[in-house]
């Protein structure tokens, strides 16, 4: 599923329209704890979060995430959009709750963020 499809599934507004939203996402992680995001995600993971501070974008940048969905309609400051654009992290915004956002994506085939069978690298989480 690409990020246009994600936006459609979540009735989401695209806050970084200049970025490439054709990139595919296969797994997602819902969290407001950023160290958990750093520990348990894989590159290209889609993050769903209620956080709207700049650290959510910095975290996505370091962990090479595929994009961020800000849930439950929290107001996003322009500076967050600017940083997301600068870091090339697509940013979506939905009024749906975390629960419903995750539910819709799971129902559409997006997987949880778990380690691939047979992968013994340091990066993939072991959960």
């Amino acid at each position: 599923m690409n990020l246009y499809d994600v936006a459609s599934k979540l009735d989401a507004t695209i806050l970084t329209p200049k970025l490439d939203l054709s990139r595919q996402v296969y797994c997602a992680y819902g969290a407001d704890l950023l160290s958990d995001v750093l520990a348990f995600t894989r590159p290209s993971t889609l993050l769903l979060s209620g956080l709207i501070n700049i650290q959510v974008v910095r975290t996505a940048e370091m962990a090479e995430l595929g994009g961020i969905v800000v849930v439950r309609g929290k107001p996003v400051h322009h500076s967050l959009q600017e940083l997301a654009c600068a870091c090339k992290i697509p940013l979506l915004w939905t009024e749906l709750t975390m629960f419903e956002s995750c539910g819709r994506l799971y129902q559409s085939g997006i997987k949880p963020c778990i380690k691939d069978a047979g992968c013994d690298c340091h990066v993939c989480p072991s959960v």
């Binding site: 407001d32 704890l33 950023l34 160290s35 958990d36 750093l38 956080l51 501070n53």
Partner: peptide, 12 residues
């Protein structure tokens, strides 16, 4: 509240 302080920094 900003998403840190979960006790995962050094383990990460």
């Amino acid at each position: 509240e900003i998403g840190f302080g979960a006790g995962m920094g050094l383990p990460n």
